[in-house]
Design a protein around this nucleic acid. Structure first.
Length: 475
RNA sequence: GUCCCUAUCGUCUAGAGGCCUAGGACACCGGCCUUUCACGCCGGCAGCCGGGGUUCGAAUCCCCGUAGGGACGCCA
C-alpha cells in the first residue's frame, strides 16, 4: 500500500551500548508519533560506530523494548557499522575540498592539553596543531573537519528558536577515527541526509553538537533537516536520570509489571501536553501529537504517577487482556498453567486493586493454593476459638445455598448475620482469613464465587479445624 | 572555567498581555460509600525564582541576577 504523505521522515538512532532507557524511549516515542501523525515514515538506525562499546545484546534489547512499547518502524534497522563505504565517499569530498585534514596528535597529547586548558580556565578545544601540516593518511591518524574561525552558526530549532554559536567556540572535530570508523557527528549527518530525514527530534543534550553538524551539512552541500531539541528527563534530585535513580531501562518496567500503554502514556506527558488531558489512547496520541505543544523545560521522572497510570490501565483493561499479561507473573510465584476460566475470575477480582502485575500476582496467590497459609498476625487476631462454631455454621448454610453467586452469597451473609445476631464485619474478617489467609483481599463474596463452592467449603473446613486445634489462650 | 538551554503547586503540566481570585493531574490530608483493601465520589493543602523595565494592564514581552540542567572525547 502506498502512503500518500508529505514526506515527513523521522528517525530514532540509539547507540547499542546498553539497554533502551526511559529517556531514549521518550525520544523514540516522539519521533514515532510525529511520523504517524503526519502519515510519514519512522526509521530506526543503530549507531554502532563505536565497535568497542557496541554489543549485539544491546541492539537486541533495544529492538525488544521498541516492540514492547509498540513503536514499529518503517525502515531499518540500519547499522552504521556496515555503511563504511558511504561515509568514506563523503569523507573524500571533504578531503578533496580541503575542508578536512589528517591529524597525528595522539589521544594522550590531546588529553594533556585538555587538562591544561581546563586548569587554566580556558575552554578545552583542539589547538590546530596539524591543521596546516598537509599530512596524508597513515596509521594512528584521524581526520579532522576544518571549522571556520570566524562568523557564527545559527541553529534554527523549532522548539528553542534560533540559537547562535560563535564558530570560534567550535573546534576542528574528528570526523574519522584512526580505526577507520566515522565519529558520531559525521555519521549522523551523512545518514540523516542519505536517509532523507526531514525532522530530527532528539534530546537537547545534542543542541551543542548541532552547529558542528550544520557546518558539516554545509561543507558537504547537503540540505538541512528541521531540528527539534526536546528537554531531558531528570531524576528526583534534578540530576540527569541515571541508574542510581532506580530503574531506567524500559525492560525493567516490563519486568516490574507495568503495561506498555502506561509507560507510553507516562512518557508522552513528560514534555508534551494536550490541554488538561492525562489519559490518551494510542489513536488519540497520534491524532493530537505535534511539536508545537512540546514543553521547553526538563522534566523530573516520577514513578508515582507512572504507577497511577499503570493502575488505570490495569483496571480499565479487559479481563482477557490482563489475564494474559498476568500469566508470566503468576509463573514467577510458582503458579503455572492456570485454567483460563479460573485465571480470568481471579483477574477480574483483582483488577481494581492492583498497581502492577506483580502486585496482582502476589495478591492472587491464595486463589491457587491447595491449603491456605494464614498470615500469623491475621490468624492471631481473627481465628479465635470462638469463631469455629460460626464458621462451621456458615459452611453449612453455604453448602445448602441455592443461588451460589455474588448476589446470593451477599444475601446469605446478611441473613446469616441477622439470624445469628453477629455483626457482618465480625463474620467477614474471620471468613476472609480462612479463605485468603490475609486481612486484605477482594470482597469475600467475590472470592467465594471465584473459588467455587467446593474449594470454599474445603477452606472453611480447614479453618474450623485450625481453630479447633488451637490451644486455648490466656487461661 | 567557557559556551548553550531552561525556570508556574513536592512532581507532571494548562496558560501565547486583560477570560487568572492562576486551571487540571499525581502524591498527600480529610469525608462519603463499605464485609477488609481497593475502586468510585466529594472536599482540602500547595505554585507564577528574585529584581528592574515595557504597557492603561504581565505568569505571559525585554534586561540583569540567581538557580538547575547540558556541552566542551579517536562516546553517542
Amino acid at each position: 500500500m502506498m502512503t500518500v504523505d508529505n514526506n515527513i521522515r523521522t528517525r530514532f538512532a540509539p547507540s547499542p551500548t546498553g539497554y533502551l532507557h526511559i529517556g531514549g524511549a521518550r525520544t523514540a516515542l516522539f519521533n514515532w508519533l510525529y511520523a504517524r501523525h503526519n502519515n510519514g515514515a519512522f526509521i530506526l538506525r543503530i549507531e554502532d560506530t563505536d565497535k568497542e562499546r557496541s554489543t549485539a545484546a544491546s541492539t537486541q534489547a533495544i529492538l525488544d523494548s521498541m516492540r514492547w512499547l509498540g513503536l514499529d518502524w518503517d525502515e531499518g534497522p540500519f547499522f552504521q557499522s556496515v555503511r563504511g563505504e558511504i561515509y568514506s565517499a563523503y569523507l573524500e569530498k571533504l578531503l578533496a575540498t580541503k575542508q578536512a585534514y589528517y591529524c597525528e596528535c595522539t589521544p594522550a597529547q590531546l588529553e594533556a592539553k585538555r587538562q591544561e586548558a581546563l586548569t587554566q580556565g580556558r575552554k578545552p578545544k583542539y589547538d590546530g596543531t596539524c591543521r596546516e601540516k598537509g599530512l596524508v593518511a597513515g596509521a594512528g591518524r584521524v581526520v579532522r573537519f576544518r571549522c571556520p574561525d570566524f562568523g557564527e552558526t545559527v541553529v534554527h530549532d523549532i522548539l528553542k528558536g534560533n540559537v547562535a554559536f560563535r564558530n570560534e567556540e567550535l573546534d576542528d572535530l574528528v570526523v574519522f577515527r584512526s580505526d577507520g570508523f566515522p565519529t558520531y557527528n559525521f555519521a549522523v549527518v551523512v545518514d540523516d541526509a542519505e536517509m532523507r530525514i526531514t525532522h530530527i527530534i532528539r534530546g537537547d543534550d545534542h543542541l551543542n553538537n548541532t552547529p558542528r553538524q550544520i557546518l558539516l551539512y554545509n561543507a558537504l552541500g547537503l540540505p538541512l533537516p528541521v531540528f527539534c531539541h526536546v528537554p531531558m528527563i531528570l531524576g528526583a534530585d534534578k540530576a540527569r536520570l541515571s541508574k542510581r535513580h532506580g530503574a531506567t531501562s524500559v525492560m525493567a518496567y516490563q519486568e516490574m509489571g507495568y503495561l506498555p500503554q502506561a509507560v507510553v502514556n507516562y512518557l508522552v506527558r513528560l514534555g508534551w501536553s494536550h490541554q488538561d488531558q492525562e489519559i490518551f489512547s494510542l489513536a488519540e496520541l497520534i491524532s493530537f501529537f505535534g511539536l508545537g505543544s512540546l514543553g521547553k523545560s526538563a522534566a523530573v521522572f516520577n514513578e508515582e504517577k507512572l504507577l497511577w497510570l499503570n493502575q488505570h490501565y490495569i483496571k480499565t483493561g479487559t479481563v482477557e487482556e490482563i489475564a494474559l499479561l498476568l500469566k508470566p507473573f503468576l509463573a514467577q510465584v510458582g503458579i503455572n498453567d492456570p485454567a483460563d476460566g479460573f485465571l480470568q475470575q481471579v483477574t477480574a477480582d483483582l483488577l481494581t486493586r492492583s498497581k502492577t502485575l506483580i502486585d496482582m500476582a502476589q495478591a492472587g496467590m491464595f486463589y491457587f493454593a491447595d491449603k491456605v497459609a494464614y498470615d500469623e498476625e491475621a490468624a492471631n487476631k481473627f481465628l479465635l476459638p470462638s469463631v469455629g462454631a460460626i464458621l462451621a455454621q456458615f459452611a453449612q448454610c453455604l453448602a445448602e445455598l441455592q443461588d451460589y453467586s455474588k448476589a446470593g452469597i451477599e444475601q446469605l451473609l446478611r441473613n446469616f448475620a441477622a439470624d445469628t445476631g453477629i455483626k457482618l464485619k465480625d463474620i467477614a474478617q474471620p471468613l476472609r482469613v480462612v479463605l485468603t489467609g490475609k486481612t486484605v483481599s477482594p470482597g469475600i463474596d467475590e472470592v467465594m464465587v471465584s473459588l467455587g463452592r467446593e474449594k470454599t467449603l474445603q477452606r472453611l473446613r480447614d479453618g474450623v479445624e485450625f481453630v479447633g486445634a488451637k490451644p486455648p489462650q490466656g487461661s
